[in-house]
Design a protein around this nucleic acid. Structure first.
Lengths: 218, 218
DNA sequence: ATTAATTTTTAGGCATACCAAAATTAATAA
DNA sequence: TTATTAATTTTGGTATGCCTAAAAATTAAT
């Protein structure tokens, strides 16, 4: 298997089950990778042979220790590059995902560690995702989703789980950036949409969007 | 054809005939790409169909205007990255070639132009090779090889044509870096090796090495 | 518990990009 | 000019990584 293929599978499996408790379904993998489920089955069998995953037919998949290490190193590369693109090269948080998707496959530890050093070994990337250190150790946190927020409470935006340009530009427009303080004014019973107050302005957040915003109680 | 494959073929054809006058042989291409000549024939037929090259059976290959533009953009990416790695990230000129070989395939003009801007739009890379500008325009020069130097003359080192770590480390050891002034003390009749004086020390250069050093008369 | 819906797997195929060995073509030397 | 050598192309074959359609297995619903 080509390294890039392996890396993309392992990274995606990791992203679908970062704590490695849950087992990952082929369907979800196929969706994320934009390929046919039949191809996923085939690939997982090979990844199992290569000892990167434990794949049990018609049940699910999880990373082995080796697979997990490799996945973490890809995730590290991706997140370090995203941070570098934003902090050092002046890109917006809404335009770095695609580029990092390519840069993450450049295999050179010295390069990534150098970038990390220049950035002061950051622990979070521009989307609030934790960056594994050179050993693969990753910051744990107990943040919640905005969709789980309670009415009248104050929160701080800590991250996003959708990295698409469209979504991030929408957030920018309403000043819903990482670090921003927000208050949950009300939750519509009808459709579960959330009315937020951010910088004294009201914003209506759809349930789908609220599911992609990570917050911490204040 | 995968873009990376196309890019590697076009870049290699360009490097073997940068002025696009000479026609490139399959054998040389196969050598540079470390693949079988039969595979080269096959690939060239496809590149011809795709209008990137004009390939005439049993005669040779040259780039079309389209192919030349693409080749120049890969060469630009490669050389900008090499320069960035050396100047901004502290790598040695002997360790950047391999990394740039991967980075050159990252497709994002804004990124490359940003890097170029940070570097002050350099015209030469760390090995003395000219960097095409964003439009593909490239600096012409009439440098010669050290192997063509004349006795007793003074020269300035302008570049190298071999980018291997081994060769560059050897040059470093004798202070034969870009910009260094050298004097040709003598040329051995026996084997054409050259005795140089650089920083008051004598160095004996083999014909093979002399063929990889680019100089300019002083 | 049986049916229905969904997910996963199998089977058969296709394009890419490489290979080795044989055949052809071109270049060089006698 | 012919023979020899070298380069190129053809032929047939391989592994990868994807596909569609059909079959099988699992899960959910009645």
């Amino acid at each position: 298997m080509r390294t890039e293929t392996v890396e993309n599978y392992l990274k995606t499996i990791y992203n679908l089950s970062s704590d490695n408790t849950l087992v990952v379904s082929n369907q979800k993998l196929a969706d994320k990778l934009s390929i046919n489920p039949a191809s996923v089955t085939e690939a997982l069998r090979k990844l199992h042979e290569l000892k990167y995953v434990i794949y049990e037919k018609s049940y699910g998949t999880r990373l082995t220790t080796t697979g997990s290490k490799l996945a973490l190193s890809i995730v590290r590369r991706h997140r370090i590059w995203e941070t570098y693109l934003v902090k050092e090269l002046g890109f917006g948080w809404d335009e770095v995902h695609e580029i990092a998707e390519e840069l993450e496959h450049v295999k050179n530890d010295k390069l990534i560690n150098k970038l990390a050093e220049i950035l002061g070994n950051p622990v979070y990337d521009p989307h609030g995702d934790p960056i594994p250190d050179a050993k693969g150790k990753i910051q744990k946190s107990n943040f919640i989703k905005l969709s789980e927020a309670r009415i009248k409470n104050n929160y701080k935006i800590m991250g996003v789980t959708d990295h698409s340009t469209a979504f991030l530009k929408y957030l920018d427009k309403h000043h819903l950036v990482i670090g921003a303080s927000v208050n949950v004014k009300s939750i519509e019973e009808f459709d579960n949409s959330i009315v937020l107050v951010c910088q004294k302005k009201e914003v209506n957040i759809s349930p789908k969007a609220a599911d992609c915003i990570i917050i911490e109680g204040l």
